[in-house]
Amino acid sequence: MTIGLPQYLVVSGVLLALGLFAIVTRKNAVAILMGVELVLNAGLLNLVAFSRFGGGLDGQVFALFGIVLAAAEAVVALAIVLQVFRARRSVDASKACELKE
């Protein structure tokens, strides 16, 4: 019943799979972004788990940078989604296929 590294890696792997599923199957651009957040969290969870069980704090520092970059990514991506919505009245990613109106 002891909790080791493999348990965390399984949780993170399932999180990654669910995020990929959302990215591949969603049409709504905001929902695709939610999938990206899931994938990022899976990766960061891996970093922290390896840092805990492999020794050293480097994994946690990298996870901190990852959180900051994920915040920047989310802000810019949502601003783009809002602009696409303003231009097309829809956030369907499979219809927004032109760079210019």
Partner: peptide, 18 residues
């Protein structure tokens, strides 16, 4: 992906908890 992650994760040694 879930199956690959499961196989890879269970092959990892448990490691020493700091």
């Amino acid at each position: 992906v879930a199956a690959a992650a499961f196989v890879a994760a269970t092959a990892v040694p448990s490691g020493v908890e700091s």
